[in-house]
């Protein structure tokens, strides 16, 4: 646990990014689109002499798909980079970022929290070490190592 006092007396405890599993679905979609666009490029090459119109249409479609995928992947990467979970001795802050689509900051003050717990359900969450941290009724999902985070928060609550 890394603690550090700030100018307003708030003690920083830890910060983390959301677990990467949240982005597996969109990344898989991008992979399928890339494969499809490569296949379309191949078809465009095959039909270049026999059916020129079809070849050109396939080529333009493949280019659009490839570029959309590129932008999609980097949108995902940069959004994940900005999405953070920050724990201090006074609050937990969750930044939900999707560039141009979503800009949310959820703040949970710890002085009102009575119970903190961590949940992992299923094989995937156990193997990949992610889960949910529950603060009373509020749930923070896709937290890497949720038990360690819950332990840190419980430690802060004990100190109060």
């Amino acid at each position: 646990m890394n603690t550090e006092a700030t100018s307003n007396g708030e003690m920083f405890i830890s910060s983390m990014q959301e677990h990467w599993i949240r982005y597996v679905g969109p990344a898989f979609g991008c992979l399928i689109l890339t494969t499809l666009s490569i296949f379309l490029y191949y078809l465009a090459g095959v039909s270049a002499f026999e059916q020129e119109w079809a070849s050109d249409a396939l080529f333009v479609t493949a280019t659009i798909m490839l570029l959309v995928t590129t932008h999609g992947i980097f949108h995902l990467l940069m959004s994940r980079y900005l999405s953070q979970i920050i724990v201090t001795d006074k609050r937990i802050i969750k930044l939900d970022q999707r560039l141009f689509l979503q800009d949310e900051m959820h703040e949970s003050p710890l002085d009102k929290v009575r119970v903190v717990s961590a949940e992992k359900h299923g094989v995937m969450q156990s193997l990949l070490r992610y889960g949910t941290v529950v603060l009373d009724q509020q749930k923070i999902t896709y937290v890497p190592h949720p038990h360690a985070v819950a332990r840190d928060i419980a430690h802060v609550l004990e100190m109060k």
Binding site: L82, Q84, I86, L95, F100
Partner: peptide, 22 residues
């Protein structure tokens, strides 16, 4: 996208720094 990322990075970068340098 790059300019939006830069904007958000500086917006939340200063927020992070107010909490901790780490």
């Amino acid at each position: 996208l790059v300019f939006e990322f830069r904007h958000m990075y500086h917006k939340y970068g200063s927020f992070f720094r107010s909490l901790s340098d780490t």
